[in-house]
Design a protein around this nucleic acid. Structure first.
Length: 491
RNA sequence: GCCCUCAUCGUCUAGUGGCCUAGGACGCCGCCCUUUCAAGGCGGAAAUCACGGGUUCGAAUCCCGUUGAGGGCGCCA
């Protein structure tokens, strides 16, 4: 027997950048599609005429691409799309009259009606309900307007909205793939607006029409949509359409347990990119927010999430976003990179930091790789290797005080400088042999020599493995820096 | 206010009636390695399984209540 092809969608509204929460929703949809060989669709829900922007739409495309969440169907820019169920941008669908057509069908069936209430009236209604401690729901006063009343409203120039006639009793329930059986009493639901006065559809209506028309089999979204679901289900029922499966993902909260927002720091994917996180880190970390394998696996190789993801491993309770663990994970993935990958990834960050690569004392990829195990963020790279790219290094004051200004150091540096001058081929091995030989002959402890050399040559007391560092800095610069330390700090 | 959801170390989580004196990961602490800093290895502290009642020979696991947290109640999505 042929199983129905799984089709899922990520449906962001282009009113801002792609956020952590949105990216997580997109990721779970993507992984679910990959796991079951389904189709991942990107639909743009720009029915908010005031807040939707082209820029937001583009930044969402960009962030999704950066994360590697490629979609099989949907808009790829404002003009072009892929897939047979388009258009995939709701404003374009609206222009085609799709939503109006379906709204009219419900109107004809008597399951929807025109409402002439003004925003002011509605506000008063809510206020009154609040005072009387009732749920603030629309009272249905336009359900049974007479022809005369309608005529009068029209004469006044009022623009109507179309409301859905919600059943007054009964129960709406569904078997949520994450939460299990969920039910709502219909009498608590309300006659929500399907078509606004502007003619644009509202989210709850457009979403259902499109999910149906696009043959969506699984609606995977944040659990802030749980209370929208019974509203939407009643639309499906009114049309006699088959229900998709629903899966409501838990929310992601900030470190203080409240909804993730700007005050918690970076919230958009593009910011994390700029901070120096790897796309794979974001994928892996976000996957672990509300999902896990039976053995609580932490690190996933490329392609492994697509293989192991399952809705069954999804958590019902909200998860707190932990930047510390994210950063740890990024370090893990930076360490796994090949030298070439790391070099490629470092370029934009070196440029951003104003590093002049033409002044490199050795091969740039080698220099970048020398501190590979230390980077947690790509933006750490320039900070740790900048002294390979300049003739004028800056000296860390504390290191100068504690290491260089110790008695005897001047002598040691002068002597080691002579040793280094004599090394013909300035390589790690030769430098190390010569330095150790020197320590032995002069009776110095290795640390008495190694530390001052490090500070004299790099300007600080922490850094890469010493002899390789000297090789990469190069004989000329090493000698110059030793001389400078001797004459400047120790005179 | 009304409706809905959720509840295991500080955090992410494993756990679906006996294997739990509750496992893994981040973070934290200590030791080892070591020219520094990291990385790595080893070890440790850290959860009366929110609380209170049941059911059961037996409950983190099932039921009820309480509390707390989160979400929703827009001509926003």
């Amino acid at each position: 027997m042929s199983e129905k092809k799984i089709r899922v969608r990520f449906a962001p509204s282009p009113t801002g950048y792609l956020h952590i929460g949105g990216a997580r929703t997109a990721l779970f949809n993507y992984l679910f599609a990959k796991k079951y060989n389904g189709v991942f669709i990107l639909r743009i829900e720009d029915t908010d005429e005031l807040r939707s922007t082209k820029e937001s739409m583009h930044s969402i495309f960009e962030s999704l691409k950066w994360l590697g969440l490629s979609w099989d169907e949907g808009a790829i820019d404002e003009e072009r799309e892929i897939g047979d169920f388009g258009p995939y941008i709701q404003s374009k669908r609206e222009a085609l009259g799709i939503y109006k057509k379906y709204a009219e069908e419900l109107l004809k069936k008597g399951m929807a009606y025109y409402c002439y209430c003004t925003p002011k009236e509605l506000e008063e209604m809510r206020l009154k309900a609040h005072l009387e401690k009732r749920p603030p729901k629309y009272d249905g006063r336009c359900r049974h307007l007479t022809q005369q009343q309608i005529k009068n409203f029209e004469l006044e120039g009022r623009k109507p909205v179309i409301r859905f006639k919600m059943p007054d009793d009964g129960i709406t329930s569904w078997n949520d793939l994450i939460h299990g059986e969920l039910k709502f009493e219909n009498k608590l639901l309300y006659d929500f607006i399907m078509i606004k006065a502007s003619g644009y559809p509202t989210y709850n209506f457009a979403c259902v029409v499109d999910d149906h028309l696009m043959d969506i089999t699984h609606v995977i979204r944040g659990d802030d949509h749980i209370s929208n679901t019974p509203l939407q289900i009643n639309i499906y029922k009114a049309f006699g359409w088959e229900l998709p499966n629903f899966a409501h993902l838990s929310m992601i909260l900030g470190p203080d347990g409240t909804r993730l927002s700007k005050r918690h720091g970076a919230t958009s994917i593009s910011e994390y990119r700029k901070l120096g996180y790897l796309p794979h880190t974001m994928k892996n970390y976000l996957a672990l927010l509300g999902w896990s394998t039976k053995d609580s696996q932490q690190i996933f190789e490329k392609g492994e999430l697509e293989e192991k993801f399952d809705l069954e491993g999804c958590q019902k309770n909200p998860a707190i976003f932990d930047p510390v663990k994210l950063t740890w994970m990024n370090g893990e993935y930076i360490r796994k990179m090949t030298k070439d990958e790391l070099y490629e990834a470092s370029l934009p960050f070196l440029k951003e930091a104003g590093i002049d690569l033409s002044k490199a004392s050795s091969n740039v990829a080698d220099i970048v790789a020398i501190e590979q195990e230390k980077y947690k963020l790509l933006s750490d790279i320039p900070k740790l290797i900048d002294f390979f790219f300049t003739d004028e290094i800056t000296y860390d004051e504390i290191s100068v005080e504690k290491v260089l200004k110790k008695p005897g150091v001047r002598n040691i540096l002068s002597e080691i400088k002579e040793v280094y001058e004599k090394i013909e081929i300035f390589t790690e091995v030769n430098i190390e042999n010569a330095t150790r030989q020197f320590c032995k002959e002069k009776g110095y402890k290795t640390s008495e020599v190694f530390h001052p050399v490090r500070v004299a040559v790099s300007g600080r007391s922490h850094g890469p493995t010493l002899f390789k560092m000297l090789e990469y800095i190069g004989k000329r610069r090493v000698l110059v820096r030793l001389e400078k330390s001797i004459s400047f700090f120790l005179s």
